[in-house]
């Protein structure tokens, strides 16, 4: 436990980010405890993705500080590659490496970025494929897999680096409805295993079930945060109510 971050595993203070004239994040404060799951909800363009991308330094913040695992990552002195090795991120578009087999997708980064031996990386990759139920796809190329399978492989690829934090960026948004379940099931298992996660999602029932905390992002600020019950069943803010009503119409609550 470090003074940095006040004991929270991830701690954001006054984080702002702008792209040219558009302020995407405006003074975000957010704490995430170890082994907890925080879900970010909010309309498209509310800043959920940018927030996640700032935490693994795919984007540089313009103001504010981010502390991860006791380390201030926004001071420009951090070893970016080392930091990213302990933060896994999964994207909406999977972003698997199409020129490599599933197994190679899982072993490349552990071997090249972390220096794991070939045998160790293979062992871990096969164990992960077993865990996600895709052992028989080890030697297939990603384009031979369904969207749901590809996204499960992308999750496994991130887990292969043994991260301490997982960032999930709307990972079911590109999937056909019938494929969403298998991916969320895997995330649920991850949560149960105690993985610290920050999850940007439109799946409200999933958030209700898995999150320890739900944050409603609205135009770059956190409009409201609390337990899933507080936010999803009894929101205090008008904006939150409006957003949830729109989602409900879309049939996703």
């Amino acid at each position: 436990m470090s003074a940095n971050g006040n004991g929270h595993f991830v701690s954001l203070k006054g984080v702002s980010k702008r792209f040219d004239n558009l302020e995407v994040l405006h003074g975000i404060d957010l704490d995430v405890d170890e082994h907890s799951v925080v879900c970010l909800i909010g309309a498209s363009g509310s800043g959920k993705s940018t927030l996640l991308r700032c935490i693994n330094l795919l984007e540089q913040v313009d103001a504010g500080t981010i502390v991860v695992d006791g380390q201030t990552i926004t001071d420009g002195k951090v070893d970016v590659n080392r930091l990213r090795q302990k933060i896994g991120i999964v994207f909406q578009a999977y972003n698997l490496f199409p020129h490599m087999t599933v197994l190679q997708n899982l072993t490349l980064a552990p071997r090249k970025a972390r220096g794991a031996s070939r045998a160790d990386a293979l062992d871990r990759a096969r164990a992960l494929l077993h865990r996600i139920g895709l052992e028989e796809k080890a030697d297939e190329f990603p384009d031979r897999l369904s969207g749901g399978q590809q996204q499960r492989v992308a999750i496994a690829r991130a887990l292969a680096m043994e991260p301490k934090l997982m960032l999930l960026d709307e990972i079911t948004s590109a999937l056909d409805p019938q494929l969403i379940g298998e991916v969320l099931e895997l995330v649920r298992e991850l949560a149960e295993s105690g993985m610290t996660m920050i999850v940007a999602t439109h799946e409200m029932s999933f958030a209700r079930e898995v999150a320890n905390k739900v944050c409603f992002l609205d135009a770059g600020v956190i409009g409201e945060e609390g337990t899933p019950k507080e936010i999803l069943s009894a929101p205090r803010e008008e904006r939150t109510r409006e957003f949830l009503a729109r989602v409900l119409e879309g049939g996703r609550l």
């Binding site: 693994n56 795919l58 590659n81 990213r84 994207f91 972003n95 698997l96 980064a109 970025a113 972390r114």
Partner: peptide
């Protein structure tokens, strides 16, 4: 696709790798 570079970087690989 620029997602490829982002995926590689976010796994801790250097730009050169």
């Amino acid at each position: 696709d620029k997602g490829q570079m982002e995926a590689a970087k976010s796994l801790g690989m250097s730009y050169g790798q």
